[in-house]
């Protein structure tokens, strides 16, 4: 049943204009970020004939690393977990909410009534879509980085080890998106609409990022730090930071939220993100499995 439903979900996702629009927006924003980073370095180093030093030297050095191989991998994966996460929420909300809004959930589940398999198939299809998006993002990133580095004279030191750890980085990036994706599916199922899915996902994201900014309070008291580190965002930040470190980056130079001294340890971060994912996934599953499937909303 799962395989059949996965094939159906993949066809729906592959043919959906919203999915392609999200991909185009993601790649466009990624390209824009890389072009801006390139201009920042160029201005800092006077390549354009103007010398503008708004960033410290070590910050510019970090950006130079992000524009070079293998640092570009970390940079792209960081983008996946910021703008990509928001776009994933929109895509997931549209995917399940659309089935409710159009009433297609009824026709689908009256033919393939295993609701658990339906939710699993939808989640896996979305993750596969995101995986393809990440791979395309990496390709675009590498292409722009090669052009930028040729212009700015940046060195490349790509090793076999970098390529071997790349799948780990990609898997971690997907894990970072997973709780938001599942929360969005749960919200869409609870509200039986795309709008409810978007609202649930985005509102939580805003709340979570806000709560994540409390991380610095952890410097005041270890107990406060432990409590704050049970929230999702500090653990997400920890995983994002690890993905950067995997490719020689130190993103704390550019973002205070990625200060390794106050963020949770890698094992805790992974565990907490998995627990949140299970919680949201269970909510989505329970809602879809137990609720009556009504007509178009």
């Amino acid at each position: 049943m799962f395989t059949r439903l996965f094939a159906a979900e993949w066809l729906k996702l592959w043919r959906r204009p919203l999915a392609w629009a999200m991909l185009a927006i993601f790649l466009g924003l990624l390209a824009l970020s890389l072009i801006l980073w390139t201009l920042v370095v160029a201005l800092h180093e006077g390549v354009l004939g103007i010398n503008l030093t708004v960033l410290r030297d070590e910050q510019v050095a970090e950006i130079r690393r992000q524009l070079s191989l293998p640092g570009i991998f970390g940079m792209v994966l960081g983008q996946v977990n910021s703008t990509g996460g928001i776009l994933a929420i929109l895509l997931a909300a549209g995917s399940l909410g659309g089935d409710y809004s159009w009433g297609t959930l009824r026709s689908l589940l009256s033919r393939a009534p295993d609701r658990r398999a339906y939710l699993l198939a939808k989640t896996m299809a979305l993750l596969l879509g995101l995986l393809i998006g990440i791979v395309l993002g990496l390709l675009v990133g590498v292409l722009i980085a090669l052009i930028a580095s040729a212009w700015l004279g940046l060195p490349h030191t790509l090793s076999v080890r970098d390529l071997l750890v790349l799948p780990i980085g990609i898997a971690r990036a997907l894990l970072i998106i997973l709780p938001y994706l599942l929360l969005t599916l749960a919200s869409a199922a609870l509200g039986r609409s795309t709008l409810a899915g978007i609202a649930g996902g985005i509102v939580f994201l805003i709340f979570d990022i806000g709560a994540g900014s409390l991380t610095s309070l952890g410097l005041v008291n270890p107990l406060i730090r432990q409590v704050i580190n049970l929230l999702l965002q500090p653990n997400i930040n920890s995983l994002v930071m690890q993905n950067g470190q995997l490719f020689g980056l130190d993103q704390s130079l550019l973002t205070n939220a990625l200060d390794p001294t106050v963020l949770p340890a890698p094992f805790q971060a992974t565990l907490v993100v998995i627990i949140y994912s299970l919680l949201f996934g269970y909510t989505a599953w329970r809602t879809i499995a137990r609720r009556d499937i009504t007509g178009a909303q």
Binding site: R4, L5, A7, A8, L11, K12, R15, R16, P17, G98, W102, G103, T104, R106, S107, L108, R111, A112, G295, A296
Partner: peptide
């Protein structure tokens, strides 16, 4: 109830797969 962005044929393909 159908997916408006898909053709009639593809809507049936989705149901065939499911």
């Amino acid at each position: 109830a159908f997916y408006p962005y898909l053709s009639g044929y593809d809507n049936l393909r989705v149901l065939c797969r499911a």
